[in-house]
Design a binder for these strands. Structure first.
Lengths: 214, 214
DNA sequence: ACCTAGTAGTGTATATAATACACTTCTAAA
DNA sequence: TTTAGAAGTGTATTATATACACTACTAGGT
């Protein structure tokens, strides 16, 4: 197995980072300066360094210049087709990340509406499409949606988040029922202030669920 | 991004190949000769060559010396923790494979009962555990189970396959109902011969499902 | 003081899906 | 002829998912 060595492919991570902002599901994109795909948008990514884990590489790419606390990170798929980078054989382990709405991202790149994406370089449109499919699927059978919210939230905020991610309206009573049954969320006792409406109960993620987002 | 180059990790694939045999769910394992983990069992694997896809590398590892027709292959997860191979930084893209019961495998390695595994080298116990979890989950919401069966099968054979994979008995009428409704399987009109029981109708995978196993 | 806009909050009925459960029939082998 | 073993077949119950409409409260503007 180690008797002789083939040329090694490069290994990178690519990151589909999602965030809710201004009622849109947004994705972080980087504009490329150099060929190939100069002028097009790509997902942020980078080489995996010799002694860092794949997750550490994601963290480095995402928060080199940022100060991020709550970031959900999950491996998505590994893209390794020969020719996906025209320069060299590059195998990319794709991850997707979710930044909570109360985070401030100050690194490079721009946040784009996931519903209206520009043309993407490399195979990043495929990566992003895979990430969106996974994200929407997990929204219904896991607690991943809470990663988009601050630690405390009202049920109305949660419903607007879910609707933005799925891109379709949800029934209010059924949505509330699904969060309230089985202790997925628990009331904090506090009530929201402000807004042209009655104060809303503030909830947090249920204790049993807190570490089980996947 | 390409201004200077870090040392490149090696990229391998590791393969959890499953097959039903003698009423057991079996996994292909290779006994290691050399250190590290000499004498222990590992999943078959190998380096990804310069110009081959990840799937092609899996196919090469699995069928170098075998003559295999029906092999289901699906990417599982990428394991890249530093130190998972004590010799070198190795990033392994794990796949799992399913061989249909009527295939003959003649390559290296031994087929082991997945319920009674020996000690595995590297992090292969974790890979295999991930594969088993995924396999069992997909059995209930996809048509992946049919990959274990020959193209034509009776409902009894299918139920025994499902029960072997899940490791628990299933209700006969509910199982048959779930396969027959919505055209998941279609009757061929032929009947089985032999056995101390009435002839059974022979089915094949429904036409709509034939290419949708994932 | 009044009006308006906007969200909070609340139950029930229906449809669909999942589960539990037992007997008769047919064939091969002893 | 007997026995063992699988084939085949319905219904009742439970749980889950979906559809659907009104009142109450607050902020802000008139």
């Amino acid at each position: 197995m180690y008797h002789y060595e083939h040329p090694r492919p490069a290994v990178t991570i690519d990151l589909a980072a999602f965030m809710l902002s201004a009622g849109e599901l947004r994705v972080l994109l980087i504009r490329r300066d150099a060929e190939p795909f100069a002028g097009e948008w790509t997902l942020p990514g980078g080489f995996v360094h010799s002694e860092e884990s794949l997750e550490a590489a994601c963290g480095r790419v995402l928060s080199a210049k940022a100060r991020l606390e709550r970031v959900y990170l999950e491996q998505l798929y590994t893209f390794g087709a020969p020719g996906r980078d025209p320069r060299d054989r590059v195998i990319s382990v794709a991850y997707y990340a979710i930044l909570a709405a109360d985070q401030r991202y100050s690194g490079p790149g721009q946040w784009h509406d996931a519903q209206a994406l520009p043309k993407l370089g490399f195979d990043h449109a495929e990566i992003l499409s895979t990430a969106l499919t996974r994200l929407r699927a997990k929204l219904t059978y896991s607690d991943i949606g809470f990663e988009f919210l601050p630690e405390e939230f009202t049920l109305g905020e949660a419903q607007r988040a879910w609707e933005t991610i799925l891109g379709r309206p949800l029934d209010k009573r059924n949505f509330r029922k699904s969060l309230l049954e089985k202790g997925r969320v628990q009331a904090t006792g506090k009530k929201s202030r402000g807004g042209a409406h009655p104060p809303a109960m503030i909830y947090k993620l249920g204790e049993d669920q807190a570490q089980l987002s996947t």
